[in-house]
Design a protein around this nucleic acid. Sequence first.
DNA 1: TAAACTTATTAAACAACTTTAATAAGTATC
DNA 2: GATACTTATTAAAGTTGTTTAATAAGTTTA
Lengths: 341, 341
Amino acid sequence: MNATPKRLRKVILSGIRKSLLEFGSATKVELSDKLEISFPTISKFLTQMEKDGEVISVGLDESSGGRRAKRYMYNPEYMLGLAIFLERTETNYAIFNCVGEVKEQGKVPSVLVEDGLHLLTTSIEKLITAYPKISSIAIGVPGSVDNGRIFYIPGYEQFQNFDLKGFYEDYFSIPVVVENDMNAAVLGFHHNRRIQDNQSLVYLYSGQNGPGAGFMINGDVVRGSTFFAGEVSFVPQYNDRNFRQALENGTGPKEVPISQDYQIDAISRLVASFTAIINPHTIIFCNDEVEEAIVEKIALASSKYIPSEHLPDLTISDWKQDYLYGLQSLGLDLMLNQPLK
Amino acid sequence: MNATPKRLRKVILSGIRKSLLEFGSATKVELSDKLEISFPTISKFLTQMEKDGEVISVGLDESSGGRRAKRYMYNPEYMLGLAIFLERTETNYAIFNCVGEVKEQGKVPSVLVEDGLHLLTTSIEKLITAYPKISSIAIGVPGSVDNGRIFYIPGYEQFQNFDLKGFYEDYFSIPVVVENDMNAAVLGFHHNRRIQDNQSLVYLYSGQNGPGAGFMINGDVVRGSTFFAGEVSFVPQYNDRNFRQALENGTGPKEVPISQDYQIDAISRLVASFTAIINPHTIIFCNDEVEEAIVEKIALASSKYIPSEHLPDLTISDWKQDYLYGLQSLGLDLMLNQPLK
DNA sequence: TAAACTTATTAAACAACTTTAATAAGTATC
DNA sequence: GATACTTATTAAAGTTGTTTAATAAGTTTA
């Protein structure tokens, strides 16, 4: 349950941080109104945060008829985040500040190899030494993750069933989050487009291992009972073909970008299924797989199967970018929940 | 945000109530441990609640080596709930206490008619007069509901876009919840089987207006962006038939209970779709539509489409009963969140 | 330009939960 | 059966947020 004053403090603190970042800057009264926390409490927190260098005073507001209010902004460089993308062929990383600006981006050899863990550890160590303000680590992996433990990662058995989060939190004493690549992308899209919470999104992609989807429903990532959610390859669509078979059309290698009519019909049937089942607000396609004109064709084709007023917003986005945003947003969340020093 | 001491008080109070009902009875230490609230706070609340008659002392525990602890139980008759089921042909109601025992059950003529609101109001008035301890009203309706406002209720336009919750909360000064019938049933199943939170369930049924489904994902009811979630009729399944057409097989009136092979194949394709998309823990069929032997056939048929290790638990339940449980659980929630008198 | 009015901030009294110490009520053992 | 040990409960002191009153710093107007 955790309904204690200590918990309250954490919630208030992270509320102040989030509001300052959201608004860009704010006065104490604005924060008090927004967060519905009393003025003296806001004041006490802000005084301490200013002392720590976490917030900066940026002068006085114009008077609105009385004494002028002091305006504060969050110091975006106060904490940095580290995002790491584990991929088959390479490992990318990005260091970003609290407003999402990337301070440094780079790559190291893939760590999804024998003794990769050690390689990863030394890479992180170097980065933390160079940027001591790093206060969170977000790691994206091409596998299923349950609360920081890598659950199922076909092809990279040395990481299978390894508690990456626990390991690095102990090792570095910095909060760590580990998330599946697809789920991170959905989160990133959600966060970047500033979509209201508790909306539902579907991110559709053609992976190396066949098509898949990431779901966010009511604002939560969907993992499924056996972490099988999103394996849309298996959706039966025609008398004797499922989605994957329909996409491949018996020709073996898949065609990308999407262009053929049989592909469009298969996708529009999938869109119809999503709509009839979870009725999401938005379905997102990858910009390197689908073009604008094709999306329109898919929308048109879908309306053969379902009333078009229920059709979700079909949109295109940059998967890589959303993946980064997603890891950033997960890391930022960890930072904003950190206690006052 | 609402991170205030007042809010804290509410959370603690409802935590005590829930724990007492869940455990049947408890000592102050047990509550303090479970809820992670300090002993003195638990003690203060319990003293007040005993004074109000909300909890009852049921004697001393056996000693475990020291002073014997007093044991308390919740007084289930302290508050009553009223559940109302609006249906086409009749309106059922049930009055229940805090442990779910039904004190009285009955029916009145359907209120889904001209001037039905007035009829409903007087019916509720009579019940509240007879049972003044009624402290919550849960109303189930065959339509879409958004925060107590009936959003879409085909055939009963007089209720369309009416804020039933707001109306009765003003009128009776008792908290009211309004929920769609299917969503209530999913909630009821979830609550009754004491399923862990944040599981995913699908409740499948053949309504008068064709088949439909209710979803609970990660413990939340899924409504969809246009309240279209669950309209699984429209899922494309064969070259030229969607789920509804496949079930009806061109013969017009549907066959219930399910028995034919073409029905089984259609349902198993739907099961496969659910699994590949959201991978739920459980899919629930209605006991008046599907028999045990058929469920086994469906499971077998589904494994043609998806790996059977990911197949959800297929189970049968009593829809009417789950609907009642669902409304009870919604009403109970309202009661447990009521402030101390 | 001084009085009246606004708005921001600080100070003091209050409320509610936690922590720690003290007390009460048992059990076990020499 | 007195002493040591356990466990439950109560009491007192400490934290932390809220409310309300007081003060500071502006603006407007007679």
